[in-house]
């Protein structure tokens, strides 16, 4: 089947579909999960999805700018995870609670 074969041949669009699916999965997780740590994990998932599309575009356009961006995204993600987890640990040590709704009580 030549038509199906053409659609199955992996190109830029396949990587972008994958990236979109992973991004939306992470988005659902951020909106619907309650546990702070799991929310942070879902953010990492979204960042990974973005990284896939960066690298795919970089390969498609044959320049390295996309890969440099992936570097920066990884660094920021590591920093965000470190601070987020430090905050979560601090709150957990004080209040024994990781539910995101509880964090509303920290206002004022």
């Amino acid at each position: 089947m030549p038509i199906l074969d053409g659609a199955l041949k992996v190109g830029l669009d396949h990587y972008l579909y994958l990236s979109a699916v992973l991004f939306v999965l992470g988005m659902i997780g951020v909106m619907m999960r309650r546990n702070v740590v799991v929310i942070l994990m879902c953010i990492e998932l979204m960042l990974n999805a973005v990284n896939i599309s960066f690298v795919a575009f970089s390969r498609y356009a044959e320049n390295v700018n996309g890969q440099v961006m992936v570097f920066f995204v990884m660094t920021i993600a590591a920093a965000e995870a470190a601070v987020g987890l430090a905050l979560a640990v601090t709150v957990f040590k004080k209040f024994r609670e990781v539910n995101i709704r509880f964090f509303e009580h920290l206002k004022g």
Binding site: Y15, L18, V37, L40, M41, E44, N48, N51, I52, V55, A56, S58, R59, Q67, V70, F71, M74, A77, A78, A81, A82, L85
Partner: peptide
């Protein structure tokens, strides 16, 4: 997947930074 896109260096960095450090922290 990065490796399949010929970005093997990024693949290694992804393994070290994400799989080896960030997720271990989680």
């Amino acid at each position: 997947l990065f490796g399949a896109l010929d970005a093997w260096f990024l693949a290694g960095v992804q393994l070290i930074v994400y799989a080896g450090a960030v997720t271990v922290l989680f």
